[in-house]
């Protein structure tokens, strides 16, 4: 009597399991095809000359130097602006802000900001940084715009990470006579760092791939120099890739693939830095 239906229930369970495996398989397969396609097409073009040359009308002379440097500048400055601001905002909202209507209003609106299309940030950046503050089409304009774009993502991820720190840990620290800041600095932040870093990396990964806001603020495609300071004009990898794919010649399409490989490698490098920091953090905890 008890085993009634058991066979059917096991069947449903295994059906569900296999559907999950199938769906995961499709996602991974698409990624593999994409990477295979890009590498087979782009690899032949990927050499030192490609990395060390500026864009050119001649595919064999064209390279990605200015875009690569531009992206590194852009992401570096964006991280510099957005990470401290975002993490500090999250600390304030989670640890200090009173739980009142105003705080909830801010919370909701940060979540809303995360859903605003990136082109809108581009318009804002153009009006505010490029025009109003006269920062022109500089790396710093781009980085500030990108910072606004990814700030909500960093704040939300950091808030989640901070909230996941058990209350009992804070109480333990308060009970030995710690101030709010000492509790946050010595216990809450170290416990939340892995989660915060994951959010930061996700946010920066988004920044590295965004094209629309950069076009909006006038990051140019043809730049025959690398930025030497934050006020220099710049271009970035996704813009360069977009530009190459827009050309009719086959060679430029292949160059775009090579550019995508470079973009992916930069992304992976960034992620591995985060994984390393997480690893080091978890080892020190012990």
């Amino acid at each position: 009597m008890i085993s009634a239906n058991l066979r059917r229930r096991h069947l449903i369970a295994s059906l569900f399991r296999w559907s999950c495996i199938a769906v995961t398989g499709v996602a991974v397969a698409i990624l593999c095809v994409l990477i295979y396609q890009v590498t087979t097409v782009g690899m032949p073009w990927l050499d030192l000359q490609f990395l060390d040359s500026f864009p050119s009308r001649f595919p064999e002379k064209a390279g990605i130097k200015s875009a690569l440097y531009g992206t590194i500048w852009l992401v570096g400055l964006t991280a510099l602006f957005a990470i401290p601001t975002g993490v500090l905002a999250a600390i304030y909202l989670e640890e200090y802000a009173p739980n009142n209507r105003f705080t909830r209003f801010i919370d909701i609106n940060i979540a809303n900001l995360a859903g605003v299309p990136s082109i809108v940030y581009g318009i804002l950046g153009l009006a505010l940084f490029v025009r109003f503050f006269h920062l022109e089409r500089s790396v710093v304009s781009g980085a500030l715009t990108m910072s606004l774009l990814i700030l909500p993502v960093i704040v939300i991820a950091s808030k989640e990470a901070i909230r996941a720190v058990p209350q009992s840990l804070r109480q333990a620290a308060f009970a030995v006579g710690a101030t709010r800041w000492q509790v946050t600095r010595a216990h809450v932040l170290p416990s939340a760092i892995p989660g915060i870093l994951t959010g930061v990396i996700l946010a920066l990964s988004r920044a590295i791939g965004e094209t629309a806001p950069l076009i909006m603020i006038g990051a140019l495609t043809y730049i025959a120099f690398v930025p030497e300071g934050p006020m220099d004009e710049f271009t970035a990898l996704p813009i360069q890739i977009f530009n190459w794919t827009a050309r009719p010649q086959q060679e430029f399409h292949e160059l775009a693939s090579a550019g995508i490989i470079v973009l992916l490698v930069v992304l992976l490098l960034m992620n591995s830095v985060a994984v390393y920091i997480r690893f080091r953090g978890s080892r020190r905890e012990k």
């Binding site: 058990p166 009992s168 840990l169 109480q171 333990a172 620290a173 009970a175 216990h187 416990s191 905890e285």
Partner: peptide, 8 residues
């Protein structure tokens, strides 16, 4: 406290 809560 009720539940042991050592720092990690």
């Amino acid at each position: 406290f009720q539940k042991p809560n050592p720092f990690p």
